[in-house]
């Protein structure tokens, strides 16, 4: 069984977690066209690669973000939503 690192509770077996799907930015509902909105609710960035995903640690009720490679199942980092580790920001800006 896979292990996952909950940012609050540490490394726990996968059976304690619930997958919450890809973490996606909601377009502004007031300015987006019908088609843009329909595209947001229905379509997914579904090719394999490194994705930002929602995961839920069930016993403690913690939602967090995991950056995971959906091809290799390797988890690169986990953090609470909106609290991406500083290291990542650096890499992005570099």
């Amino acid at each position: 069984m896979k292990l996952l690192n909950c940012p609050v509770n540490g490394v726990r077996p996968l059976s304690e977690f619930i997958f919450g799907g890809e973490c996606r930015e909601m377009p502004n509902p007031e300015t987006s066209t019908d088609l843009e909105w329909a595209s947001y609710v229905h379509y997914r960035d579904n090719a394999p690669g490194i994705k930002k995903e929602w995961w839920y640690h069930s016993p403690s009720g913690t939602w967090f973000i995991a950056e995971r490679n959906t091809l290799s199942d390797e988890v690169l980092s986990t953090y609470l939503h909106g609290k991406a580790p500083a290291k990542n920001t650096k890499e992005q800006s570099a």
């Binding site: 069984m1 896979k2 059976s15 997958f19 394999p48 994705k51 995903e53 959906t70 290799s72 199942d73």
Partner: peptide, 12 residues
């Protein structure tokens, strides 16, 4: 229970 592009097996 989660997205994965592979054919690995799980014990669960």
């Amino acid at each position: 229970p989660y997205e994965f592009h592979s054919t690995r097996s799980t014990f669960d």
